[in-house]
């Protein structure tokens, strides 16, 4: 068996997982993509274990461990997703933007007005921040 075959399959699976993580909106689909990436790694581990004929079977044992950890991760991850859903009635990943810069919304650049009353935008931002912090 050429090791290139499992390695390439694993690379493709991993890339697909990356795409899924980056492109999907639903959080559960993102979790599925994460599972894809983990499985890509597992395939690699098994293939290299077979190739290297490791006496300790470290590759396969680690695969088992990864499977276990993946299960645990999924459990906690789903619990978090459910918590988010309870709070927001939605699990859309791009709807969760509390980390965004608050000044993004006004598209215009405050030019001369800012020069004349330099404190105003700062105060506005501070007010916006405190306003968002309250709920």
């Amino acid at each position: 068996m050429h090791i290139v075959y499992p390695a390439v399959v694993s690379a493709l699976l991993f890339s697909i997982g990356v795409y899924g993580v980056l492109a999907r909106r639903n959080t559960i689909l993102v979790l599925m993509s994460v599972e894809l990436m983990l499985n890509a790694v597992n395939l690699n581990l098994v293939a290299f274990d077979v190739w290297l004929r490791d006496r300790l079977h470290s590759g396969q044992v680690l695969t088992l461990f990864v499977i276990v950890i993946a299960a645990a991760e999924l459990g906690v991850g789903l619990a978090i997703v459910l918590g988010v859903y309870r709070n927001r009635r939605s699990v859309d990943l791009d709807g969760m933007r509390d980390l965004a810069d608050p000044g993004t919304e006004p598209a215009g650049i405050p030019g001369d007005a800012a020069a004349e009353s330099a404190t105003t935008p700062v105060a506005a931002e501070a007010a916006a921040r405190s306003g968002e912090a309250k709920p």
């Binding site: 980056l22 492109a23 990943l93 791009d94 969760m96 980390l99 965004a100 810069d101 993004t104």
Partner: peptide, 10 residues
Amino acid sequence: LRFAQNGNVQ
């Protein structure tokens, strides 16, 4: 730069 800081984790 603020475009990058739009809160979209992806």
